[in-house]
Design a protein around this nucleic acid. Structure first.
Lengths: 343, 343
DNA sequence: TTGTACGCGTTATCAG
DNA sequence: CTGATAACGCGTACAA
C-alpha cells in the first residue's frame, strides 16, 4: 500500500481498471497463467500462482464480469428477481430469503419492482434477458404470461413465487393460501359462526382469489349455506380496504366473524373498528387474519392469525432455481408451504 | 406469432439467442446499419430502419448488454445498491425510491443486503465493481470505509444513504436524525418532563448515535440537568429492545416520558407496557417515537411520532447519483431530509 | 505446466 | 448514409 508504482518513462498510469493483461505483466507471466491462477484451474505452478495473486492484490485487479459473461456457455451468476412491491414486508422477506440462498452460490440479484404493472414486468423481463440472467424469480403481476412463457421456452429457468399463472407450466412456490384459509374458516364455522365475512379488497387479485377459494370451500365442506352479501374482494385503491371494512361494520345485519385476507385489510379493519367505537371498547367481532405482523397482539381486539413464512418462500424459490440453473431438468415442481394457525 | 420460419436447407435453428448479426442478415443490411438502427443513431435511412426493427421484432432480438458493456467508455446502466436489511420497511422504502428514479433513466439495480456485516459489504462492493456498475448507493454497515474510499477514488460515483461515515468524503443523504430528535425532546421538556428516557437499543449504531446526540443537545439547549440513568442504547440482540423496555418500566423511579429511537424499540415498549398492565389500562407514560408505522394510532397508548420519508431518501440519493454518473463533478453534497413531528 | 490464437456481441472509427 | 475492421477482457482449444 502506498507504494508508488513505476513502469519507466514510457509507462502510462493506465486510466481504466487493471485487466488480466496488466496482472500478467506485473507478475511476469503470460495472460493464461494469470487467468488460470485466478480462476482456480489447478494447472499452475504454486510459485507462479502466488506471484499472480500478489500482483492482482497490488493492482487491485477485479475480473471483468462482462467479458467473462460474454463467452458462450458461461453462467453470468446473475439472477433476475421481479417482485411486485418491496415495501410490502411480505415480499421484502421473500427477497431476503432469495438473497440468502444466492449468496451461498456466489450469485447476484438484479431486482425490479413492478408495482403490479404487467407492462413494467414485461420490460424488466426483457432487460434481464439482455443481461443473460441465469434464471428468473418472478412474483407475477397478472395472468398475462406470454413474456414469461417465452423466456422459459428459450431456456431461462423460471420460478414463480407467491402466485401462479393459469396455463403457464413453471416451477412454483406458494403459500398454501387455499388450505390455510379453509382451515381458519372451518374454525370459525365450528365455533358456530354462520355470518362470516371475507374482507379481501386492497390486494393483488391472484392471492386474494386463492384465499377466497379456501373461504368458499370451507363453507362447502361444512355444508352450511354461505351468506351471499359478505364477500368483499374489490379493487386495490388506497382506501378501498378502509371503505370495505366500514361498509361491513355498517351492515344492517353485520357479520359475527370476519376473515381478513391480508395484512392491509386487517389494519384497515382495525381502524374501522376503533373509529366506529369512538375510541371505546370496539364491538365484539371474531376476527381471523391471514398474514402475521409485528403488532398483531397489540390490536384493540384479539386476532387469530394464519401465519406463514415469507422468508422460507424466498429460500425455497431460490433453491429450486439454483437446481435448475445447475442443470436439473426434472418435471416442474409446485411447492405449497404450510400455514400455521395461531388461535 | 406461430409462423414457422425457414431459412432454407442449410440453415440451423441457431441455438443461442439471436444476435445483431442475425438481425442484420434477416433485414438484408450490414451489421452496422442494424446497430445504428436499433441504437438510435440517426444516420440510417428510414426504410432500412424499419426493416431492421421488424427483423429484430420477428427474431425476438435482445441486445447483449455484456457485449455492449465490454466496450470501454460505455455506461453499463447498472447501479449497485447495498443496504443493511430489506426486511426493515425503512430500507425497503429507500430501495423503492431508488428504483423509481433509476427506472426513469432506464437503469437497473444490483441489490445486496449486508445484515450489518462489513465483510459482506466489502464482498458486495468488490463484486459490483467487477460488474462495472455506474455507481453505488450504500447504507454503510460500519465506520470502516477503506473499500468505499477505494472505489470512490477509482472513479465510481458513491452515495451514502441514511448513514455517514466519519472521514469519508462522499455524497450523503440523511434523515435529520439530530434535529428531529432534538425537536421532539424539546417538546417533552416544554411539557415539563424532566425524567425522559432514551430507548435506543436494538438498532444499528450510527443512526442511533445521531438520535442520541439530538436527545442530549435538547437537554443542553434547555439547560436542564439530564438524569444519567435513563439512556438505554445497547446492543441489537433480538430481544434486547424488550429487555430494555422492561427494565425501564421497572425502575424504582421510572421515567415520565420515553423517547423511542426507532420502530423496533417502540413496538417492544408497547409490548412491555401491555404485559406490565396485565392487559388492562397501561400506565400513563408520555411516548414519542422516531419512525412512523401502519398501526401507530392503534397502539394501547397515544404515540407522538417523529415521521420521515424513507422513500424520498431513496429518491434523493438516486437523483444525486444519476447526476454524478452523468458527469457532475461538483463538491460533495450532504442532504438532510427534514422530519415531521406528529403530536 | 505454459503460451498462442481465436471468438463471444457490440460499437467507434474510418473509408467508401 | 452505409459497410468493413478493430478493439473491449476473458476463457476455450490446441500447440509447445
Amino acid at each position: 500500500m502506498g507504494v508508488d508504482q513505476s513502469w519507466g518513462a514510457d509507462a502510462q498510469p493506465k486510466p481504466g481498471s487493471p485487466t488480466l493483461h496488466d496482472v500478467a505483466a506485473q507478475a511476469g507471466v503470460s495472460l493464461m497463467t494469470a487467468s488460470r491462477a485466478l480462476s482456480g484451474t489447478h494447472n499452475v505452478r504454486a510459485e507462479n500462482r502466488k506471484l499472480v495473486v500478489e500482483a492482482a492484490r497490488v493492482l487491485g485487479y477485479r475480473r471483468n464480469e462482462h467479458a467473462r459473461s460474454l463467452r458462450p456457455g458461461q453462467r453470468t451468476g446473475l439472477i433476475g428477481v421481479i417482485i411486485t412491491n418491496a415495501s410490502n414486508p411480505y415480499y421484502a422477506d421473500v427477497e431476503l430469503g432469495i438473497e440468502q440462498v444466492l449468496a451461498r452460490y456466489d450469485m447476484r440479484m438484479l431486482v425490479g419492482n413492478t408495482g403490479e404493472d404487467v407492462a413494467r414486468e414485461r420490460r424488466l423481463v426483457a432487460d434481464f434477458v439482455g443481461w443473460n440472467v441465469d434464471g428468473l424469480i418472478v412474483v407475477p403481476a397478472a395472468d398475462e404470461c406470454a413474456h414469461l412463457a417465452a423466456v422459459s421456452a428459450a431456456g431461462t429457468p423460471l420460478v414463480l413465487a407467491a402466485r401462479t399463472i393459469d396455463g403457464l407450466a413453471a416451477d412454483t412456490v406458494l403459500i398454501d393460501d387455499v388450505g390455510g384459509t379453509r382451515a381458519a374458516v372451518r374454525v370459525l364455522l365450528d365455533e358456530g359462526h354462520r355470518r362470516i365475512a371475507f374482507l379481501g379488497s386492497g390486494m393483488s387479485v391472484p392471492t386474494s382469489a386463492r384465499r377466497l377459494e379456501g373461504f368458499e370451500s370451507a363453507y362447502a365442506e361444512a355444508r352450511v349455506p354461505r351468506p351471499p352479501d359478505l364477500v368483499l374482494a374489490g379493487t386495490q385503491e388506497p382506501n378501498a380496504a378502509l371503505h370495505a371494512a366500514r361498509s361491513l361494520l355498517g351492515l344492517p345485519d353485520p357479520p359475527t366473524a370476519i376473515f381478513c385476507a391480508n395484512n392491509r385489510n386487517t389494519v384497515a379493519l382495525m381502524h374501522a373498528l376503533t373509529e366506529n367505537a369512538a375510541h371505546r371498547t370496539p364491538p365484539q367481532v371474531r376476527v381471523v387474519a391471514f398474514d402475521n405482523f409485528d403488532t398483531a397482539d397489540l390490536m384493540p381486539i384479539h386476532l387469530s392469525i394464519v401465519d406463514h413464512n415469507a422468508h422460507e418462500l424466498g429460500v425455497r424459490a431460490a433453491e429450486l432455481l439454483v437446481r435448475r440453473v445447475r442443470g436439473d431438468r426434472g418435471a416442474h415442481q409446485r411447492i405449497e408451504l404450510a400455514t400455521h394457525f395461531r388461535p
